[in-house]
Design a binder for these strands. Structure first.
Lengths: 245, 245
DNA sequence: GTGTTTAATTATCACATGATAAACGATAGC
DNA sequence: GCTATCGTTTATCATGTGATAATTAAACAC
């Protein structure tokens, strides 16, 4: 008959102490980092509504210990968000996009070949959607960052690539076109990590096709869109009476 | 000083009865339908982890009443799923796709112009992702249905449109290409309903571009892919020694 | 009106949750 | 080896949860 003692490691112990609890004492900063890291994995699988006891079990510690390192569960969750979102962002992405020494198609390829591996993993994807469904501002802020530092720069660079000199804000057509490309790529990550319907999507073809689509549609649509925007701008600048005379 | 009586409707009541509770007695089938309908709205906003008391408050009934109509909370949730998923599916979608009397591009336009309005609403989208993150089989089954009744038929019809006569299963290239188009369209729904970053995406342009992309890439890629598949099939049919001689 | 049916209520259960306080014991400095 | 520190534990709290039983009252038949 085997003992059910949870501390029984299988090694024969001559003097069976009543409570040989083998707690590892870690330096506070190490422990905290470890907790956030493992909590990110845990919450990404179970959702943020999962209990702190289950979390603690998975972390290999007792539940009250969590509250020594984090004032509240929400506090821990916020640190998880910060780790996942802020920790993954690479400033090189924007630089790749804005590097005018190379053609736009190459820049987009390079960018997505760095961006996709960074976020196409189960943990990032799931936390992104958990937070998104909650309507959390950290998620909205991430999307703002995607728009302001990635997608709008792409649209601006595209104007330059097309030889358009225009300082007016990006039109909705231009912006929608970038979102379309981005969405087509991003959806591959959803299929892979959220749906899990495929072992691993070959997103190289998807990448090529999405970028092709953008480059092609952009050259068709954007010159006209920009021209329309400029015409509207001129019209606005002319005083009302000018139209009548 | 105003009374705080929850039943106070504002009408002056001469004989102030101690508990004039105004409960409406509904026919069981009506009540049940009403509960499922409102629960779908509630859970789509709050997530399925939200409490039954909060739900009951929103429904305008007491919490135990829920358990008179549903054996458990999970039972109610399953009825919500069924309502949202099964209730929205339209058999006409597959028929539109398979109508060989019309060109593929038109069929795809018609299909998506019916499909998008059916699922591009906050309730459907959110419940879809809540269920997806939970890894529920009802969600996986929905995706199987999308694949088997919508996307694979599109790939098959595309072969016909391209004049290819081939009974071999759809290759991964063909399937990935349809998923790419579908994802580009679907992502517009995510932006609109999950991100809520735009008031209303003008998904007409997105639709046109996505379908164009598919038609164009398909005509480029699919004939070769099918030819390769057939060659591989022939090779497999030939006995091993045949390759050596 | 009176009585019967049963939809909806109030009161309550056992259990799980986030969080706190007190006790314990692994490690570092001497 | 002894002691002080503080990382980690056990024990516990108040509250919230899904679910049940007993009670009340709205609607219908006569």
């Amino acid at each position: 008959m085997k003992t059910n003692d949870p501390a029984d490691t299988g090694e024969p112990q001559a003097t069976a102490k009543p409570n040989p609890r083998r707690t590892v004492r870690m330096a506070p900063e190490d422990r905290k980092r470890d907790l956030v890291e493992k909590a990110a994995n845990f919450f990404s699988e179970e959702g943020f509504e999962a209990g702190t006891r289950q979390l603690a079990r998975q972390l290999g510690v007792t539940q009250p210990l969590i509250f020594r390192y984090f004032a509240s569960k929400d506090d821990l969750i916020n640190e998880v968000y910060r780790k996942v979102y802020v920790g993954q962002w690479q400033d090189g992405w924007n630089r790749t996009i804005c590097n005018r020494g190379r053609p736009m198609g190459d820049r987009l390829h390079d960018f997505y070949r760095s961006y996709c591996p960074a976020i196409f993993n189960r943990r990032w994807m799931r936390i992104f959607f958990f937070a998104g469904l909650k309507g959390l501002d950290i998620n909205a802020r991430y999307l703002d960052k995607v728009r302001d530092e990635l997608l709008l720069p792409i649209a601006s660079e595209m104007r330059v690539e097309l030889g358009l000199h225009c300082d007016l804000p990006i039109t909705s057509e231009e912006s929608e076109l970038v979102w379309l490309m981005h969405g087509a790529v991003f959806y591959q990550g959803i299929r892979e990590q959220i749906y899990r319907s495929v072992d691993a999507v070959d997103y190289d073809m998807a990448l090529n096709a999405s970028i092709d689509l953008y480059l092609q549609k952009a050259s068709q649509v954007i010159p006209d869109a920009v021209a329309r925007a400029e015409a509207a701008q001129v019209q606005k600048a002319v005083p009302r009476l000018g139209l009548i005379t």
